[in-house]
């Protein structure tokens, strides 16, 4: 059974309309597409932050407020709370009913944030904020993790740290969806790729198939890097 099932889901902004059906399974799914394709909109619908038309089933049940506790999302533009980096983590943990400082520090260490643990989160650099946002999501136990362009602000070293974390998460049996416009990241990381263009799901399949044998011309152009704009 698919973890997430979207049936004829439509989000109409007037200028832009997202309209698709898809099923997402355990493992890593990449939502690939150029900017403005509708990746963020799709993730927000899955995260139950956005109203929509159509049907959405979460592990077989009609998705509703209560399923929000099974999903977390890391925004494209990292948002941090007032207070220190550690406070940020402790807040997330406290909502999960588990505010252990050890756990928080363990995760900070993993994401290379331990030395800024006592710093005010608002004063972090863009890359540090992004890692903090990821750390905060990793700190809590969820079925589904949504990452919106998780490495867009990161240098190569930190990007690979984040990718490793995502891989570890997948290994523990979680469902991960990452939105990215980076074809190499999709190729490196994901089990499946969904190629989005103008709010439509153009092609959806195994990563290997999408990159080596794309069926659609648009997909072909995008994964070959010709459409990299």
């Amino acid at each position: 059974m698919a973890v997430i099932e979207l049936r004829n889901v439509v989000k109409d902004y007037g200028q832009f309309k997202l309209s698709l059906s898809m099923e997402i399974e355990r493992g890593i799914t990449a939502i690939l597409g150029s900017s403005g394709a509708g990746k963020t909109t799709l993730l927000r619908i899955i995260a139950l932050l956005e109203s929509f038309e159509g049907e959405y089933y979460f592990m077989g049940e009609e998705a509703s407020e209560k399923h929000r506790k099974k999903i977390t999302m890391v925004f494209q533009q990292p948002v941090v709370f007032r207070g220190t980096v550690l406070d940020n983590l402790l807040y997330a943990l406290s909502l999960d009913g588990n505010s252990s400082k050890e756990k928080a520090e363990e995760i900070l260490e993993k994401l290379n944030l331990l030395e800024v643990a006592k710093k005010k989160a608002k004063n972090l650099s863009g890359g540090e904020k992004q890692r903090l946002a990821i750390a905060r999501a990793l700190a809590i136990e969820r079925e589904v993790y949504l990452f919106d362009e998780p490495t867009s602000n990161l240098d190569a070293e930190n990007a690979s740290i984040v990718e490793k974390c995502i891989r570890d998460l997948a290994k523990s049996g979680k469902t991960i969806v990452i939105a990215t416009h980076n074809i190499f990241q999709a190729k490196r990381l994901s089990d499946k790729v969904a190629f989005l263009h103008n709010g439509k799901l153009i092609e959806y399949g195994e990563t290997k198939q999408i990159f080596e044998n794309p069926k659609n011309e648009l997909t072909k152009k995008f994964v070959s890097g010709d459409a990299y704009y």
Partner: peptide, 22 residues
């Protein structure tokens, strides 16, 4: 953004409002 962030971290709507105020 704070309201939504709190929701993604598992806050109820009421908890999210409290977080916004704080």
């Amino acid at each position: 953004e704070i309201y939504e962030l709190a929701l993604t971290l598992g806050a109820s709507r009421a908890q999210a409002v409290v977080k916004v105020i704080s």
